[in-house]
Design a binder for these strands. Sequence first.
RNA 1: GCGCCUGUAGCUCAGGGGAUAGAGCAUCGGCCUUCUAAGCCGGUGGUCGCAGGUUCGAAUCCUGCCAGGCGCGCCA
Length: 593
Amino acid sequence: MKNDLRALVAEAVGALVRAGELPEVAAMEAQIERTRDPCHGDFSSNVAMVLARQAGRRPRDLAERIVRALPASELLEKVEIAGPGFINFHLRAQALQALVTRILAAGESYACDRSGQRGRILVEYVSANPTGPMHVGHGRGAAYGDSVCNILAATGWAVHREYYINDAGRQADILALSVWMRYLERCGEDLPHPRRAYPGDYIRASAARILETDGPRYRCAAAEVLHDLPEEPVAADGASEAEKADAKAGQESYLDVLLQRARALLGEDFAVIRQRALADQLAEIRSTLDEFGVHFDQWRSERELVEEGYVRTAVAKLEAAGHVYALDGAKWLRTSAFGDEKDRVLFKADGSATYFANDLAYHVHKLERGFRHLMDVWGADHHGYIARVRAAIEMLTGRKDALQVQLMQFVTLSSGRMGKRSGNFVTLKELIADAGKDATRFFYLTRSHDQHLEFDVDLARAQTNENPVYYVQYAHARICSVFRQLREKGITWDQVAGEKRLNALCEPHEQALLSTLSRYGEILESASQQREPHQLAHYLLQLATDYHAYYNAHRFIAAPEDARDARLNLCAATRQVLRSGLAMLGVAAPETM
RNA sequence: GCGCCUGUAGCUCAGGGGAUAGAGCAUCGGCCUUCUAAGCCGGUGGUCGCAGGUUCGAAUCCUGCCAGGCGCGCCA
């Protein structure tokens, strides 16, 4: 509809140019927009104000000429000039009424393009480290990524959803060590848990499972484990920042020493324990995501990627291209030549690969699988990481724009319980159990991902009318209820008759509802282009508002017979859009509440 | 110190060049013998962080300040 109007305006401007009333201007920079106030019609354009200067006329003057040059259209009731020079378009009631039939005919594919013809896109999201349960920050990325994928898939993209498993590297080793220490403890060994090892109860649970299935075969005497180990440094109460930092660094190196000891004592079993621990954490993450309604097409293991040689190959190519140099025993990538702040290490002095080296190879691997468009959903704390990955991609493919990164700003809980390595943070699972999947997802998705989010736990868990998620769901349930009542009263809904009587939908409430329904496609497209599901969430709140107002102002079942079917058609169309929209957000559309 | 994000109603947030700045919660007042009151109707509440600038027009763009968050590892 918007495009139809844009074409009309373009034609009018073109006519004026040909008539010499307008200079050959840079085509159409003017916008057609939805109006905020219904008094201003359905759409308005600022062309006249934008072109006034070039035309050498006053905006309202030019607006009049444009309006006169406008081709006739059956969409339009009237066109008015208002304010400083706006051209306001009032649609004919008929133009909106016809929408009802289109929505009902298309059903769940209404306003959707599932052809995938826009191209293939690989979206990587969540990718939470399998070193512990998911927390509320991960939940935001999960809800966002899943919903963006739904929206992309509905707007012409062939979407591939992927989770990158960080199962290589130091964090995974620390996880293994943490589990082993708890395992030894459970075997009866008396030894202190390192301060910077993972502390949570889930570590104990994992240790207990290993002891149960494998028995004490990984047991070593505490004295053997701790033999000749230095004391773990501790910052005293009231220590300065510098002292605390020192202690922290000391604790990290203590951990490294302990890791070496564990490898020495366990040999190949260290890897066995690591795999078991990772599998436990991954299982927990999968089950949480399952509950949250988030599913992936593929789970890609970092370790496998390394073993399959992708890192070696990618780095070899970078070396061949002359982007790699050695310094201080490490291998560096010259990312600063491609927009990064400084160069980055690929291989540390001890020969091990950095996370970056593996991740770079992973991204190249994504592109090699034929995805021209990559999208990553990361926490805002990874911001500084974007430039180096982009740089590496550009070095290998010459493409600057292949990777789009969406950063999720931080989540805090209204009840103020956060924190990470402390071991007692609020997990996503707890939040879902508390507030429910639907409320949790809706709360995450109503805010822009670009915005810090304070999650109002009390409001989300409220099973009352205070909770906004029910507002939208209730609109859907209400419509379902209308149709149930209809059946119970033995009244048949004649959809075809309704289609013929759509001109009965002329009440202001009906016009408002129709107008909102007509925006659905525009919202989907905008949410898709800008990767902003919150636009859809806000739209659904508006649609529910319009429906509730309509519901309270008019009768459907008890309506005069000639209007009844048309109104029921409108109800059914509204239900369809609510259902489709909620599905994109991953929120249920209940039939009763 | 440098980079990124943010500052809009009491609280949580939409709006990101256009016409009197919006929603939810909170608060105050109305509406259930009639299809679900998890609803509707109405009221209170804002110098859009501050100061300049750009223009027909700035909450929106630019500059500078102030305040908060996050980064600035041979961690991941």
